[in-house]
């Protein structure tokens, strides 16, 4: 990747390490994360619970609690500016305006004691110098854009008067209010029922087309990935284990973890009594192995080197990266993706 290409990216994450303090010891939840998001692209981040997806999104927003967590290394470059070094005040000008975020739980993401109108005006007042009336007009306009049919009325209502789907629409309306260049959606449909899920995803795609923003969609639902993604990043235990275009990932997954994930999707054309699962769980932060591949214990293809050699994320095919010792490129740092990033 050339320097020029990288400059055009909305987001470049380089060598990111984020850790939590547990009993005064820093345990990394995210290690050596490198990836980028191009303008107008939808990048999906998938993985099981506890593999660091949400920590990564909060690291980008600089929203991790300062008391017990820390970005210990790496850079988050947004439009070429390193967000890790920004002050709280500078971040507040970026949050909500240039990078917006949608959270998993629409039921609790809105403050119960303020009206929808108040909460929508808040994000506008945070970044624009406008009157209350103008803000109301804009809020109504935004609510229309996310498909809410009686926006004037909704403004005076409180979150508890709306359904989950409606609330998520309101949250999305707030997120797109200032036409951000990047939208981070952290499992935006997980808490919603299936029909609403489809509507919300459709809405996100629709809006993305209209306002030209990039979306980083965090999910554990491969169905959502197939529907939405341009590119997919698979995470396991705080590391990226595979990165590929959506077509490549589904047709020729390289990493055994990705293969297992795809295997565990129930197939319409097969009748089985038992669903495929991956045995075991993601190791906890304290019990993360120091060396070797973190997936070794659960991997069906594990062999002698796996617990001994730490694999690197490396290019295994055209624009297809994996972190697995089944591929020779992953043995050496010299051939790794991290090196590639360093060199530009």
């Amino acid at each position: 990747m050339s320097q020029e290409q990288q400059d055009q990216n909305v987001l470049n994450i380089k060598n990111l390490h984020t850790g939590f303090l547990i009993n005064d010891e820093l345990h990394h939840a995210i290690v050596d994360v490198n990836f980028n998001v191009k303008p107008k692209e939808i990048v999906c981040v998938v993985g099981e619970s506890g593999c660091g997806k949400s920590v990564m999104s909060l690291s980008i927003m600089q929203l991790l609690p300062k008391i017990n967590s820390k970005i210990s290394a790496g850079e988050v470059l947004f439009n070429g500016e390193n967000l890790v070094q920004k002050s709280e005040k500078e971040m507040n000008q970026i949050r909500g305006k240039d990078i917006a975020m949608i959270f998993q739980e629409p039921m609790t993401a809105l403050n119960p004691v303020f009206s929808i109108g108040w909460q929508m005006r808040e994000i506008l007042f945070n970044h624009l110098d406008i009157t209350k009336q103008e803000a109301n007009h804009k809020a109504i306009d935004l609510l229309k854009q996310v498909g809410i049919s009686r926006p004037e009325k909704i403004l005076n209502e409180y979150p508890h008067q709306l359904s989950g789907g409606m609330r998520q629409r309101v949250v999305i309306a707030m997120a797109i209010a200032l036409q951000p260049k990047l939208l981070i959606a952290d499992e935006p449909t997980t808490a919603l029922d299936v029909t609403i899920q489809a509507q919300i995803l459709e809405l996100l795609k629709d809006i993305q087309n209209k306002v030209n923003m990039a979306i980083m969609l965090i999910t554990h639902d491969l169905g959502v990935v197939a529907e939405m993604a341009d590119r997919v990043i698979v995470m396991y235990a705080g590391k990226i284990v595979e990165e590929a275009s959506v077509v490549d990932l589904f047709t020729q997954p390289k990493h055994p973890y990705t293969q297992s994930l795809l295997d565990s999707i129930p197939k319409m054309d097969q009748t089985t009594d038992k669903l495929n699962t991956i045995d075991g769980v993601v190791p906890s932060l304290e019990s993360m192995p120091e060396v070797g591949c973190r997936f070794t214990d659960r991997c069906p293809k594990a062999f002698g080197d796996c617990p001994l050699v730490t694999p690197q994320l490396a290019k295994v095919n055209n624009d297809h990266y994996a972190r697995c010792l089944l591929y020779d490129e992953c043995y050496s740092k010299e051939t790794s993706y991290a090196k590639e990033v360093e060199n530009v």
Partner: peptide
């Protein structure tokens, strides 16, 4: 609470 994190994500000052 989630709504506090949401408010931070909106760029609301502390």
């Amino acid at each position: 609470k989630d709504f506090v994190r949401m408010a931070r994500a909106k760029g609301t000052p502390e």
